[in-house]
């Protein structure tokens, strides 16, 4: 068992993608840098209140001598806890230029509301 575990960690390096999270009136937006990840290698999961982002940046090594080596290949993995204010059924995602953008809409009841004052 222990051996298996060891192999798993050696197989793919785990990369924690940096994120920006910001809030608008209606949504919480999560932006993550996942260079090298395609739609096919990306997976998003919500289990209970945990949102997990996984993606693979595969090394396309077709020979040659590596003279500068700063890119990290492996598996992107990061989990976030969603608060009560997020409407989990309405989450949408977009992947563009190696950036994952998640739109997490707020429940209707927590959105700021403007109250019109009626005058007679």
């Amino acid at each position: 068992m222990a051996e298996e575990k060891k192999e798993l960690t050696e197989d793919a390096r785990r990369i924690v993608p940096p994120v920006d999270i910001y809030e608008t009136d209606n949504d919480v937006i999560l932006v993550a840098d996942v260079p090298g990840v395609t739609k096919e290698t990306l997976s998003l999961n919500i289990e209970q209140d945990e949102l997990t982002i996984r993606g693979t940046f595969e090394k396309k090594d077709n020979g040659g001598d590596k003279l500068i080596d700063e890119c990290v290949y492996g598996e992107y993995h990061r989990t976030f806890t969603l608060g009560d204010l997020i409407d989990q059924g309405k989450i949408s995602a977009k992947l563009e230029n190696g950036v994952l953008t998640l739109t997490l809409p707020k429940h209707e009841k927590v959105k700021p509301r403007k109250i019109e004052i009626e005058t007679e």
Partner: peptide, 16 residues
């Protein structure tokens, strides 16, 4: 560029 600049509140800012 930043994903959004005006009228939003950043909760986390890690991306360069």
């Amino acid at each position: 560029r930043l994903p959004a600049e005006e009228g939003v509140t950043y909760i986390r800012h890690e991306r360069p």
